[in-house]
């Protein structure tokens, strides 16, 4: 399982309940350095809850998270960020009225004048670093000074990913439905971007409904059902039909 590299993240028996609803019922998962793991499952299988637990937005009620063999507690997005874990959310990633640099640096602006909340950001440095990040990820945005509301879906997704990369997703980058609601050409660009990141050795977890995209970019597929990871399979070992069988429960899971 760790042939691609060292074990990076281990989730052990994560549980999370919302009132009577048991969203996570002992979910366990391992991700090795440099791997791209796709997290699939039906609606309500617990994918989002698992991501929110890793991101620190809704910490799990019980269970263990280990990062490089160390037990860690992730109780806020800040904790996750400091550990080098960044999450790109499907819809809630960008502030529409701010420009590309404003979004990429949101909450972590370099400062020209330090005055607490009333600090003045160094917009020149922000623009320069933004251009650098976009260049590195081969993202082309003609007019980065405009509010991101004017960008296409794929460009917005790219900005959101660029933001996480710049913030330093040095350990893990989690992408929540990166290709949902995008046009064909846009999807191609986002998948290309994921490929670029993969070549750079970025460890990624991709939550997706689209099995075609999952098969195009992932090394491993983790299948969730009823709050558990019921199977982790090598993408090259299985067919789409197998994965669908695992998702709906026609095939009993076996952790590879």
């Amino acid at each position: 399982m760790t042939e691609n590299g060292q074990l990076l993240l281990e989730l052990r028996n994560l549980e999370k309940s919302f009132g009577g609803l048991r969203a996570l019922q002992g979910a366990s998962l391992e991700i090795a350095q440099g791997q791209t793991v796709a997290l699939v499952g039906d609606n309500g299988a617990g994918k989002s809850t698992l991501v929110k637990a890793i991101a620190g937005i809704q910490p799990a009620d019980s269970g263990q998270i280990r990062l490089r063999g160390q037990d860690v507690t992730i109780s806020s997005p800040k904790d996750a960020g400091e550990m080098g874990i960044e999450v790109v959310y499907q819809d809630l990633a960008l502030a529409n009225s701010l420009d590309v640099a404003g979004n990429i640096f949101l909450g972590e602006e370099p400062l020209k004048v330090k005055l607490g909340w009333f600090s003045v950001p160094d917009t020149k440095q922000m623009d320069a670093e933004t251009a650098e990040t976009l260049e590195r990820l081969r993202i082309r945005i003609p007019d980065p000074g405009r509010p991101v509301a004017n960008l296409s879906g794929g460009q917005r997704q790219a900005v959101a990913i660029g933001r996480s990369i710049r913030k330093g997703a040095r350990e893990l980058l989690v992408l929540d439905e990166p290709t949902a609601a995008l046009g064909v050409e846009e999807v191609r660009k986002v998948l290309g971007l994921i490929g670029t990141l993969k070549d750079e050795g970025q460890t990624m977890m991709i939550v997706s409904h689209d099995l075609e995209h999952v098969f195009m970019v992932s090394d491993l597929i983790a299948v969730m059902r009823q709050g558990r990871v019921v199977a982790t399979v090598k993408t090259s070992d299985v067919t789409k039909t197998d994965v669908v069988g695992l998702i709906v429960g026609d095939i009993e899971g076996a952790v590879a």
Partner: peptide, 16 residues
Amino acid sequence: RYIIAIGSNPAAARAT
């Protein structure tokens, strides 16, 4: 910037 971000997308602001 922060108040604009909060008004524009509270969830995005909360994730920072």
